[in-house]
Simulated scan of single mutants.
Amino acid sequence: MHAQARVDGTTPRSGSRPLVGSLLRLAGLLGLAAVLAAVVVFSLWAGTLEITPEELWAVFTGTGREVHELVIWELRAPRAGLAVAVGAALGVAGALLAALSRNRLADPVFGGAGFTSAAFVVLAVGAFRLTDFHAYIWFAFLGAALALIVGHFLPATRAPGHPLKRAFAAAGVSLTLAVVVHIATTRAPDTFAGSRMWVFGSLNAATGDRLAALAPYLGAGLLFAFVLMWPLRRIDAPGATRFAGEGGRNTLIRAGVALTLVILCGAATAATGPIAFLGLAAPALARMLVGDDVRWIAAYSAFLGPILLIAADLAGRTLDTTRELEAGLVTAVVGVPLLIVLAWRMRAGRT
């Protein structure tokens, strides 16, 4: 097939097309960064306490009222910061898991890792009375590792199967764990402050100290993720067999991706509880924008995840005037129909 001629009669160089595509994707990434910045500012402004834009600007410049500074810097800013960190972690984790499992319906939280991590944290707090974040986060890592091993690395689960069946099987396990966590936390409400967080996932526990404690873990996980993007792309390339090439290099790549998923899912769940479907929605939207390159999907998901999570948190805070809805509950309400649509498209052969 001949290249299409330009107006001047010459033909474009084939090498220019990938460059133009990369520049367009980079421009889109910068656009998402701007949208995320705007959403963060809006989340600082919106809430039950009405703050005008002028009063918000006064807080930024250090001349605001004391009550406004307290609300912005002690309540809303840590909440927005935690949403950015956890949203980026779960978005990137979703892109990694979809590439590793070759299953576009895979969600790191609803797929088992998040709810297993929450169950192990509840065990740590309830049985061992661990209340320090740096102590019980290791139980979250253990739960995420167990879920990933059982769900994706045992011989029985590594065998090829329809993605829809695997997704709903993982969902059944997650729902069972959610019921167990709910029973455990409601039977000991004094032990589990904010017990609904461990069932639905919430940003209510956001503090500056928690965000600072979380930062090293998520920073390491995101760094590992983007280092692994290039070798992972070869495994996830179109036409590649799911577990082709069981050589040492591919095994190391999969082990590195699994470790990264454990860090991202475990740390995010330890901070906010299991926020389901964010790791499904962000990569799905990214895939619509940039195609099937896992590197760009992960990069876009790192911005789409926080945008979606902040939007869900704002909806939970403002839609119901009688009580605040957990962000994870809002993502679930949106995520279940999304899962159905993606499953229908997959069954119809459109994805």
Rank of each mutant, 00 (worst) to 15 (best):
T186A: 11
A98R: 03
A184D: 06
G9Y: 09
G245Y: 04
T272C: 15
H152N: 09
L259G: 04
H182G: 06
F133P: 00
L154M: 05
G114A: 13
F110M: 10
I275D: 01
P12I: 08
L339N: 02
R317C: 09
E246S: 12
L285E: 11
A206P: 09
L259D: 03
V290S: 01
L259H: 00
T116K: 05
A302E: 08
V40R: 06
P238L: 15
V121S: 11
G194Q: 01
L75D: 07
D292N: 11
A205C: 07
D236T: 09
A315H: 00
T185N: 03
F128N: 04
C265D: 03
L24R: 05
T61I: 12
G279D: 10
A284G: 02
E55Y: 06
H182S: 11
T176Q: 07
V67S: 12
A255E: 10
T185F: 06
V150C: 09
L342W: 10
H182Q: 15
R295T: 14
R13H: 15
A89E: 04
A98H: 01
F303K: 12
A281K: 02
A99I: 07
L30G: 01
A298N: 03
M197W: 00
V179E: 02
I253S: 01
P274R: 01
A258F: 07
D236I: 05
L228I: 15
L148C: 09
R102S: 03
A276P: 00
V180D: 08
V181T: 15
G64L: 03
R234D: 06
W73V: 07
T186N: 06
T322L: 15
G248R: 13
L228F: 15
R254E: 00
R6A: 06
T241V: 14
G172L: 13
A58P: 00
G219C: 11
R287K: 13
V59Q: 01
R350W: 02
M1G: 04
A220D: 11
V334Q: 10
L24V: 11
L232F: 10
W57K: 02
R25V: 01
V330A: 14
A225E: 04
L100R: 03
I51F: 08
A299Y: 03
V294H: 07
A215C: 08
E246C: 00
L214S: 06
A244L: 09
L223Y: 01
P53E: 09
V122M: 13
R13E: 05
M229Y: 13
G172Y: 00
A85P: 01
P12W: 15
P78H: 10
R287G: 13
A27N: 02
A184K: 05
A159W: 14
R187P: 00
Y300V: 12
G111E: 07
R210A: 11
G245Q: 03
S202D: 08
A159R: 14
G305E: 03
L29V: 07
P216H: 08
P337A: 05
F60M: 11
V67T: 14
W73Y: 15
E326F: 05
P12V: 15
G62W: 13
G316I: 12
A332L: 14
A312I: 13
L100P: 01
L309R: 07
L148R: 08
A271G: 07
I263K: 10
V294F: 07
T241S: 14
L26N: 02
A271W: 10
L177G: 00
S174F: 05
N204I: 15
A159K: 12
G91I: 06
S101P: 01
A312L: 06
V257L: 03
